[in-house]
């Protein structure tokens, strides 16, 4: 009797352990399949807000925003991943127009660069598709050229160390910032621009 009771309780414990293992496995698998995202990045993307009315997703959309938040592995636009991307404005004034037709020339620490030198569109946006610069080696230096045969209009004073979204550091200048936005400006290099003034 003692022996059969013992076997019964062992079986019950075994069944319970199996149930527990299955439950744990289903939680792990479920969370892996259903929630394979970065909650910090998700929140940052959410904070960017919806598309501008009348501007569908295209190379000119969302100027001034950190492009690689979406255009990189794990992002909602991961089917069009970028190596580097950003926005160039005509001036440093808030509300300035984007600078169209500017060449953005990069040189990485191995002396390499993108297969094609990117050029800004009407919104000032430019981007380097990841397949055009798969072996990018940070840090990177960058200059803006109105004419590739002439001298650079602007050379960035510091290095790009590891962030592919230029607008992550170069946030657009604001006309009437709140106190919080003024405090946040300590960690922004300001918008990328060709010339000071209006």
């Amino acid at each position: 009797m003692r022996s059969s009771r013992h076997h019964g309780s062992t079986r019950r414990r075994g069944a319970a352990a199996l149930l527990f293992a299955c439950a744990a496995l289903s939680v792990v698998v479920g969370s892996t399949l259903g929630g394979c995202t970065d909650p910090v990045r998700d929140a940052e993307i959410e904070a960017l807000g919806p598309e501008e009315p009348g501007v569908p997703p295209n190379p000119e959309h969302r100027p001034g925003q950190p492009c690689l938040h979406c255009h990189s592995q794990g992002g909602p636009a991961s089917n069009k991943p970028f190596a580097i991307a950003g926005t160039v404005y005509e001036t440093d004034q808030p509300g300035s127009n984007g600078a169209d037709g500017i060449f953005v020339q990069f040189v990485d620490s191995a002396g390499g660069g993108p297969r094609e030198i990117p050029q800004t569109g009407p919104s000032g946006n430019f981007y380097v598709p990841l397949q055009d610069w798969p072996d990018l080696k940070y840090p990177v230096r960058v200059g803006l050229y109105e004419d590739l045969n002439g001298p650079p209009t602007v050379i960035m004073k510091s290095l790009i160390n590891r962030e592919g979204s230029c607008n992550f550091c170069h946030r657009p200048n604001l006309a009437d910032p709140t106190d919080e936005e003024i405090d946040d400006s300590r960690s922004s290099a300001g918008q990328i621009f060709l010339r000071s003034g209006s």
Binding site: N173, P177, D183, S185, R186
Partner: peptide, 15 residues
Amino acid sequence: QTGLRLKARDDGLRD
């Protein structure tokens, strides 16, 4: 100078 600033400018533009 080219990175994080301890204090912001009053107008919120880059210092």
